[in-house]
Amino acid sequence: MTVPAPTNRTGMSMSFLNPAQSVTEFKLESWMESERMEKSLVPPSIELNNISKSYGNVQALKGLSFRLEPGERCALLGPNGAGKTTTLKILVGLLTPNSGEAKIGNYSPSSEDARRIMGYLPDDASPYRSFSVRENMEYIGALRGVEDVSDRVDRLLDLLQLREYEKAKVGRLSRGNVQKLALSLAIIHEPLALLLDEPLNYLDIPTQETVIDQLKNLNSTLLVSTHIMEVATRLTERVVMISHGSVVWSGTLNDLKKLGKDGEPVEKIVARMLTDVL
């Protein structure tokens, strides 16, 4: 079998090589993972390795490393200024780290291949303000190369109860409806890797339940940045806790609960852990 040459498309770095693995085996494995991801829609892994990022004199991330296995759902927790948003922006390729490497599957986050399979919802997301709800969804759907855009838009409009605002300009919408639209724009192409920053902000309780169900049913690797433990416990099974730009704890939600006393709310456990770090 001819093994494809190491491609720029995958952007694979040798720093992830297992020493026991030969270069040829490694290339073969990366190539096969790429093919699997594109053809059989297998969610990719998400990986950060020793990432550092500074804004002027302020160091936002200091050697941050963690990995999500394909299909895993993980919450990124941390106090204000911990570096959660910077982490997400690096993972979606909008920021370049000063050092270290981020990967979505075998792809570099800024590559077109990674962008094709990624969905992203920033905190306080604002869609195109001069567009209507439908125009936003159709435009992004078309840019994403979604084949049946119109049908997909119709389904999302009904699912998120946005049908009555279909023709409304975004400026007219309440903050909750803007968030619904933003969520639909993040998932319109059914991404295999989904990165969400406070996804349930501004949503009413029935919509929160709809969104939680929808996100749980997506076939994707999910990273959710949040302050709210309820969101983490409802949407994910694992937690990565960061503070001052580094991982301070990582494990399953059950592991986290075990760190507390009997009956102690998980919020208290997290608060205590983060206070100890601060």
Binding site: V92, L94, E112, R115, Y120, L143
Partner: peptide, 8 residues
């Protein structure tokens, strides 16, 4: 997070 995320 929208247009710029759809391609390089």
């Amino acid at each position: 997070w929208l247009g710029f995320m759809t391609r390089n």
